[in-house]
Amino acid sequence: MGEKQFKGQALSWQVQGGVIELALHRAPCNELGSLSLAELEQFASALDNLEKNAHALIIHSELKPGFCAGADLRELYEQSQAMETSKAVQGVRDFLERIHRVLNRIDAASLTTIAAVHGVTFGGGFELALVCDLIIADKMARFCFPELRLGLIPGFGGIPRLKRDVGNAVVRDLLLTGRSFNATKAQQIGLVSQVVAEGEALRAARATTAQIGKFDRQTAVVAKQFIKPVPLDELRKEIDMFCELFSRPAVQAGLKKFVESTEAQPYLP
């Protein structure tokens, strides 16, 4: 398979009619760990060529539970248990540096990008959606930043990107309460551009890319660069803050509690 088509263990992509479709399909709910990151890096590398002949990118999930449940906390917990704290923190920093490079690349792509989301769109999954220019949600989508339950802040660019899109009060609400919002609420606060019926997000995203394709590409690129700068300084600061917090014993306790939880709402403390 060439760069125009890829089928991996965590994600796949294909290009048709100038639209790149990136599909996530790692069970149970597209948790982002080392495997997903490696394949996302392959996608980011392929983008250099893909975007020359495309006008739009759609990111969506093929799995029923949702778009993405966030970082793979089991992998994070197991890996950090197997080494001393300083090495674990360095490992986390390396992972964050890599995923930030990928997300920054997609954020600044010369394409109009759409996250077509449904179901669970939590933590790192929410952060992946925030990279996109538009979010189209089916009415069963839920958004949440549950990181504070672990003694952490979002680490994949969540706060700077959410702050770029909505008011500071909304960021504080999501972050400091750890509660989840449904799609209707997300649209009310200006985060989601369209709410559609269950199972219709991908279809609506495809219809939107058809509209986007009618515009002059260079004009769209200039408009995007003008209105959607990548908040690089804050993203850098976020990595430092995350790593500083990660070194505390409370985080290991929080991860252990989550991994071993049988609670109905394990994302709550």
Binding site: G66, T177, R179, Y267
Partner: peptide
């Protein structure tokens, strides 16, 4: 746990209310 979120969303959409997760904990 994932289906519990589905139920929460169904209820919010049906009754047109917001139900903070922690109130249902």
């Amino acid at each position: 746990s994932l289906q519990t979120l589905d139920l929460l969303t169904k209820l919010e959409n049906h009754f047109r209310v917001e139900l903070p997760d922690y109130e249902l904990q």
